[in-house]
Amino acid sequence: MLNAKTKPLGDPLRILSRITGWGAPLLIFAGMYLFIAADGPASPERADGFARAAKVMATGFFLLSVWAVARPRREANAFYLRAFAEDDQSMKLRTSLARALGKEFRLGGIRPPGQRSSTFVRALTNGLVILRYVGSGQMDLEAGNDWIARLLVSLTKAEVAFIDVRTMTPHLRDEIKLSVLQLKLDRCIFIVSRRLNAVEEAKELLDALDLAIDPAIDPAKLLWVVYQEGDLTAFQNDVRKIVDGLPKPCSRLEPEAIRLVDSLLDVAPPDTSRKNGPAVQILSAFVLLPFTAMVLEALWGKGWLVYVLMAPVQISVWIFYMKAVFRTFASGARERGFQSLLFAGLGALVYFSAPE
């Protein structure tokens, strides 16, 4: 049953970005300390000390670049609800939505279960997981089989929901019902593939979506936008026009929405596991990351073995980093993209200019 302890959808990107944001300055200051400590007469030990300090500082600057490109501006206050099967084809749509919404909104949605990373992997490769989430183009909010209850709590903080009805699934129908009950029809925007020219067609859409849940719903108030890849500018203008006229949000839980969630949870009991909670993720990061660093340090003197082990990770990091930067620029957040490239450039400068 829905209760006061029910949490919003999990936001791993927000948690992992905070860890990275805390860790990056610590690494930079640690590198500066190592530079000072290594200073002295010219010797092999001095050169090794400078090289180690440069690596530590460069890692700190790279983590800052990850933080700059990945940090969420705020909690999600605009939701994109869709069939998971359409994610690969809807990347341009979501990017266009983000550009149309601008800085005042953060577009959020539930990440497909198969695209999630475990707590262990997140703790072991924090920066890589962040870049994978940002660069993959998938949505970044998560939940277990209590997703419908957590979605309702998240919708209390939402100003608008975009509902892609071009492909329908049973879960999406439940999300649509929940959104209409909680946000009301004047804050739900349907994404369709063709223009609805009359109230009768709008009513047909509502009937097809099984939205006969409130006889007071007026089909004439249905908000919809047409998405066609060949006319993204018109799509963004339509979105912006509707969003500018949205009513003020209401943060209280609607009784009808609560009853719907309770009826659905009777079929699928809530997931009470807390193994992926924020506290566990943060604790795991601070325990596993130093351990990983010690293992790599122990292997550092074994030449080719270290490069064989680390090369796939390094290649993956740079691929996901460039994809994340590209998506950041594509979504209109150019200042964050430039900040990230600046920090990455500083890291490269420190790494390659370490004194001998």
Rank of each mutant, 00 (worst) to 15 (best):
G301T: 06
L232H: 08
A161F: 04
A333E: 13
G21I: 02
A143S: 01
A330Y: 08
V325M: 06
V165Y: 00
K7M: 06
A68I: 00
F120D: 13
K241T: 13
T233F: 12
T292Q: 14
G31L: 05
I15T: 12
P219A: 04
V180Y: 07
I217Q: 10
A47P: 04
L223V: 08
L178S: 00
T125I: 13
L124T: 10
L206Q: 04
D88M: 11
A54Q: 01
M139E: 09
S316E: 11
L289W: 12
L289V: 13
P278V: 04
V226M: 07
D164W: 06
L152K: 01
S193G: 10
C250E: 15
L141R: 03
R334L: 10
N237G: 12
P269H: 00
Y80E: 00
L2E: 01
G144V: 04
A161V: 07
L141W: 02
V306L: 15
P249A: 04
Q314P: 00
F326L: 13
Q182C: 09
R111I: 08
E201M: 12
A58K: 02
L63M: 12
A161R: 02
D48H: 13
V134H: 00
G108S: 03
K5N: 15
F329L: 10
R99K: 14
E75P: 14
I191K: 00
K55L: 13
P112W: 07
D87F: 07
C188I: 05
L2G: 08
L246D: 01
S43Y: 02
P290G: 07
L81S: 01
Y133Q: 13
K241W: 11
K221G: 12
I28M: 11
R122K: 11
A85N: 11
L101R: 03
P12I: 02
M32D: 11
G245W: 02
I36S: 14
E254R: 13
I217L: 15
T125F: 14
I258N: 04
T6L: 06
T125C: 12
A208H: 14
F84I: 00
F79D: 04
D186W: 04
G40D: 03
V239H: 03
E75V: 14
S284Q: 08
A285D: 01
T20F: 05
Q236L: 08
V317L: 15
F352G: 09
D210S: 14
D244T: 13
L299C: 10
L305G: 01
A58Q: 01
I163G: 02
A58S: 14
L27V: 06
L253G: 07
P112A: 09
A76N: 09
